[in-house]
Design a protein around this nucleic acid. Structure first.
Lengths: 330, 330
DNA sequence: TTGTACGCGTTATCAC
DNA sequence: GTGATAACGCGTACAA
């Protein structure tokens, strides 16, 4: 038999409403009694019954995270960080890997207070009968009233190019996934181009299509780079995996990083620090991103006012060993 | 305002207890009234309140899945399949990517009826105060009373070797991750050796250490293979990723699959069918595995008797294009 | 400062 | 077959 507040009340010699108040840290109960009650509760191994609480409070303190494409690992780190970020809040998070429809059903059933959605917002907005939610993804052509959290990809690229430019690089190539529907990828390339132009490096713009976002795509793309007459002195990799492949391929060909070629990678995740060569990277640090997402959904739940609907987060450039001055400046 | 059974009762002109029965498809209510009530409920958009139900039933119909190492993608397909398998049951699944301790807290809070745990059972067993659970993982030296679901790795390798042997292969090499604490990996190697001996192929046993489980580990391991004088006519890859690397590396060297070398991979997942060369594979099909895990936890919840505590599932060999007769038998 | 009583939405046990 | 009604565990006016 599980222990309820009535049991506590009996043992502690008070009424169970007092117990309830004490447990909720109400100012309406004397410090001494509060402490006594808490102690008794502790001893009896009391665990509040969420269902009962929810029944009267009309609130679950639970937030659902919809993550339908679990098999693309890129977001796993973000999920982990979001999960961690919630630990500092009164909210719990549950994760659904089902289709948006099934996930919605589950979340409705649990009566979550809010939802976090990754990616496209298309179908969701229709069925989301007034459960507040935030979207993490590209802020392109969405016409939802819910807040969208997005990294500022253009600024990320700006920072990467700036960093390399100031080190003395001119010929800075970009390797990423082109020709895709994925708006995120296009934004990155465009950001790169803009930044190059901004620094007057138009003639050095070189974009290489990796034809994919995976490790191997970066690995093979290097052939194209090394085949050319004039090598770039720096390469910007379009994703964590791509950069990993780039790094590996270069090392195998005897290219020294960063002495011969510098690399800067998109995606600011801790794993960058533990690569073969610790990787300089640009992007919104994943813990900040997580923090922001969590913060936003909670705010959206707790305040009735609408919040600004698109939030572009500023990236950080994290400098590591993979980037340094170009050969001619050493 | 959400609609409750009382609202339905009022509209339908019956008492709310009758509504409850109708909604639960009780035989104690006439067909006509049942249908009428159901119709009204439908029209009003009634959604049962889980919290209230749970409060009286002492059961949530929710099962928690603990998956702490989300960033190792290997299990993603399994998770997806488990999730899908639950859709055919009255249970819902929630996923936690937190540490076992935090996950346990969450699950307790939700009062899940049962839990599925991936991997080590060490710490869990202590804190799991009588929540039924099953473990998916290696059945080595665990001394828990909870059922462990495990694939029969030895049998998997047996089938792989048998398949190749019957096609005419003799020199069958194994590429996998050795020298690791991971019991699963060792079981696979041992299974390979045993199988080779069983078919009298002792002299052909060749084990190559990929030093990892990832794509690139398979990719590089091929160098070692091709460096030797006598090439194997068949290779068994220790994991999906490893095999992908093997396949790629061989193709790049102009080795034809399966004309020159046959490949069989461990891990029986649908993705095997969509590789560059559709891959023959061995192992418990992931949907069967998922089905079994779901089935076991539910059984464990619903029956009080203890079930057999270790369940070794039989593997299947799925034949595809990556394996065929060796060159000398063509 | 503490205790009483009611309601949250549902199931289950009785009567009718 | 159907309808009252008592739980389930908790929060909260309201009374004391």
């Amino acid at each position: 038999m599980t222990v309820t507040i009535k049991d506590i009340a009996r043992i502690a010699g008070v009424s169970y409403s007092t117990v309830s108040k004490a447990l909720n840290n109400s100012p309406l109960v004397k410090e001494v009694t509060k402490r006594k009650i808490l102690k008794v509760a502790e001893e009896m191994g009391y665990e509040p019954n969420l269902a009962a609480k929810q029944l009267v409070r009309k609130k679950t303190d639970v937030i659902g995270l919809m993550w339908p494409t679990i098999e693309r690992i890129v977001l796993a780190t973000l999920v982990t960080n979001i999960s961690k970020a919630f630990e500092a809040t009164p909210y719990s998070m549950i994760l659904s890997v089902d289709s948006p429809e099934t996930a919605m059903d589950t979340f409705k059933k649990f009566q979550v207070d809010g939802m976090i959605v990754f990616g496209e917002s298309n179908k969701i907005s229709v069925t989301t009968d007034n459960i507040p939610f935030v979207i993490y993804g590209v802020s392109g052509k969405n016409e939802t009233t819910s807040p969208i959290i997005d990294a500022n990809h253009e600024a990320s690229m700006q920072k990467a190019v700036k960093h390399l430019f100031e080190l003395g690089h001119r010929h800075i190539a970009y390797i990423g996934h082109l020709d895709t529907e994925d708006a995120l990828q296009s934004e990155k390339v465009e950001g790169y181009e803009k930044a190059m132009k901004h620094f007057g490096l138009n003639e050095y713009i070189q974009i290489i299509n990796s034809n994919g976002l995976n490790w191997f795509d970066g690995y093979t793309a290097i052939d194209e780079v090394l085949g050319q007459e004039k090598l770039p002195t720096a390469i910007i990799g379009g994703s964590y995996d791509i950069s990993g492949g780039i790094l590996r391929a270069l090392q195998e060909k005897g290219v020294r990083i960063p002495a011969d070629i510098s690399i800067v990678s998109y995606d600011n995740i801790p794993q960058m620090a533990t690569m073969e060569v610790p990787m300089t990277c640009t992007g919104v640090p994943v813990d900040i991103l997580a923090e922001e997402i969590v913060h936003t959904i909670i705010e959206r739940i707790e305040s009735d006012e609408e919040i600004e609907s698109v939030k572009k987060l500023s990236p950080t450039l994290t400098e590591r060993e993979s980037s340094g001055p170009p050969p001619n400046k050493r």
